[in-house]
Design a protein around this nucleic acid. Structure first.
Lengths: 224, 224
DNA sequence: CCAATCATGTTAGGTCTTTGACAGGACTAA
DNA sequence: TTAGTCCTGTCAAAGACCTAACATGATTGG
């Protein structure tokens, strides 16, 4: 994965590093909210269950964010990472499907903070239309296409029932959405220029279960 | 990560492979539901955006699931993977926090299919207590500890407001839960033998945004 | 029966990622 | 000032992982 730095110079950054940047930012924002001003690579790395040298190595791709002898300043690191990840340029999004999962996500305050302002919520159910969640009204699905075009919506969250997922996704793509965050447990087909991220919750659960089942076997498996 | 195969022989399987197994299973179950009987490594790999040789390599750690010349049989592969991952031994779970997110997760049918039967839902709100979601009643939080002990609950899903997350997690741990699936956007502290999986939804969103923002730059960045 | 095709199992080699080690800057206390 | 401590930036070596390539087996059509 190639990235362009502030001086317009191109340099290569490993995918593995890119994937960790959001984790760093997420943790740093928690620290910032807790009033922490400085954090060392060791502290930050420990809290993320990785090695400090790896964290410094990652930061090194971007030139480093401190100088030898001084820990990182949270208030400087957060905006620096936000710019690298692209959080500083807001990406307006909509949620399609206002069932419990959709409403639950709509209540997540952190999305705004992370550059994803929620601009609209859509559903076919007339009983839901008109309700407001944190100031954002639920609109009829039929208005979605016009809304996306008018507000330049880039990302859509798909939280509809499985059986209509593909159909609704098609509408989103036709309206101009370029990224779909798919919470339905099925695959959806899209043109190649549209990016789909499948949030397969069951996968996370399986990983957790895999680990918990091996707790009792620690003795036997020691030495890994 | 070490794993024991059916003959009781120990062999090492890379972490990266382990993490892909749930993805394979997830996709295969979709195929199975669609009535597909056979699938080649190429087809399966393409749908997951990985190389076919990698998939075969992964399967090779477990001895392979077919023989040269014949594609994989979905109906044999699914149970084989289920046993390896541990899905065949059910892990009863509860959801703590019956807000929208909690209710949304409670509606996810796939969890049962994947070995995680939902046994209980808990909340402090008296207005929610007594409601049923797919046959599972919402109970008062005060009954959680006894319930966990009585039913041998192993995994708890944490979908409570941020400010009470740590407190509720403490109660879960004290009751005997060994795995916590944390949906609150904060860190929770637990004894080392309790496994916490943080489902940082914002991280997934950031990865999606990172990719969508680079669509327009493809020209410039070609050659990665 | 034979050739062509399609498929997996298996391995070695290359690539990517992580890790430990260390040079040197900054701060603190005496 | 100086010794001690803590910290980052940097790099090379070790380790983990991925991939292309190929041997071999199954199937199909002629």
């Amino acid at each position: 994965m190639r990235v362009v730095n502030t001086k317009g110079k191109k340099f290569r950054v490993p995918d593995a590093t890119i994937l960790r940047l959001p984790l760093y930012l997420d943790k740093l924002i928690l620290l910032q909210q807790a009033g922490v001003k400085e954090v060392s690579s060791r502290q930050l790395a420990t809290s993320l269950d990785i090695k400090a040298s790896q964290l410094r190595h990652d930061f090194h791709y971007f030139g480093g964010f401190s100088k030898p002898g001084r820990p990182y300043q949270v208030d400087k690191l957060v905006p620096a990472l936000e710019e690298i990840i692209g959080v500083d340029v807001p990406v307006p999004m909509i949620i399609v499907g206002a069932g419990h999962l959709g409403q639950g996500l709509a209540n997540y305050r952190n999305f705004e903070r992370l550059g994803f302002p929620l601009r609209g919520i859509f559903d076919v159910d007339p009983k839901l239309v008109g309700l407001e969640i944190r100031g954002v009204p639920i609109r009829p699905l039929s208005e979605m296409t016009a809304f996306v075009k008018e507000h330049g919506i880039k990302v859509g969250v798909l939280t509809v029932p499985v059986n209509v997922a593909q159909d609704v996704a098609n509408q989103m793509v036709a309206a101009g959405v370029v990224g779909i965050w798919n919470f339905t447990p099925t695959d959806i087909r899209t043109p190649p220029q549209v990016i789909v991220r499948n949030e397969r919750l069951a996968v996370g659960l399986m990983c957790l279960s895999f680990k918990t089942k091996r707790i009792g076997q620690t003795e036997e498996l020691r030495g890994d």
